Amino acid sequence: MNTTGRDSEVRSATADREIAISRLIDAPRELVFEAFTEVRHLSKWWGPEGFTTTTRSFEFRVGGEWVFVMHGPDGTDYSEWISWIEIVPPERIEMLHGEYRGDPNAFESVLTFTPEGKTTRIEMLTVFATKELRDEAIEKHGAIEGGQQTLGNLAAYVAEVVRDGAAG
């Protein structure tokens, strides 16, 4: 079934509210997916350079939540909340991300994991409720650079897991 026309319409309808980030990761898709789905992995790489993460609660299932605090390099704490909307192992994760449950400024992200030989292409498409919220995320919070750094941290982490043979 060809949905290209519909996809193009949907894409153009949200283009001014989107951030898209992609990275090729030198690890098998199953491991990259696992690094996103198990808290023992997430806490070791999640966030931009210099950030650490403390998980308050984590339940990876549709409707489940991840409640955590990101600790900035300047000592600032950022309360975060994610709810899982769709999970298709090891291909796709859709989530709602805000500062807290019910956050009116929460945004949706879709992560896709595509095998490319022995590597994995991860694509993160984030759609904000308004163009203004997207622009604020970019300008005030460095969302593009932070997203690229986060995927860089993921790449470094899974490379270490592969090297150490600690997958699974």
Rank of each mutant, 00 (worst) to 15 (best):
T3G: 12
T3Y: 09
T4R: 08
R6I: 14
E9G: 09
E9T: 13
R11F: 09
R11H: 15
S12Q: 15
D16V: 05
I19V: 12
A20N: 04
I21G: 01
R23C: 04
L24Q: 08
I25V: 14
I25F: 02
R29H: 02
E30I: 07
L31A: 06
L31C: 10
V32Q: 01
F33I: 11
E34P: 05
F36C: 15
F36A: 14
E38F: 05
H41S: 03
L42S: 06
L42C: 07
S43D: 05
S43E: 15
W46H: 13
W46N: 10
T53H: 00
T54Q: 08
R56H: 14
R56V: 15
S57Y: 08
V62N: 06
V62P: 15
G64M: 08
E65Q: 00
W66M: 07
F68M: 11
F68I: 04
V69M: 02
M70W: 00
M70L: 10
H71S: 06
G72F: 03
P73T: 12
D74V: 10
G75Q: 11
T76Q: 14
D77F: 13
Y78Q: 03
Y78C: 10
W81G: 05
I82L: 07
E86N: 11
I87T: 00
V88Q: 12
P89D: 00
P90F: 07
E91V: 04
I93H: 09
L96H: 06
H97D: 04
H97T: 08
H97K: 08
G98R: 01
Y100I: 09
Y100K: 13
R101P: 05
R101W: 00
D103H: 01
N105K: 11
F107R: 01
F107T: 04
V110F: 02
L111N: 11
T114K: 13
E116G: 01
T120P: 00
T120V: 08
R121M: 04
I122E: 01
M124Y: 04
E136K: 07
A137W: 05
K140A: 12
H141Y: 15
A143G: 00
E145L: 13
G146H: 08
Q148H: 11
Q148E: 15
Q148T: 09
Q149M: 11
Q149N: 10
G152W: 03
G152K: 06
G152L: 01
N153G: 13
L154Q: 07
L154F: 05
A156V: 10
A156H: 05
A156W: 01
Y157A: 04
A159K: 14
A159Y: 08
D164H: 06
G165P: 10
A166N: 08
A166W: 02
G168T: 13
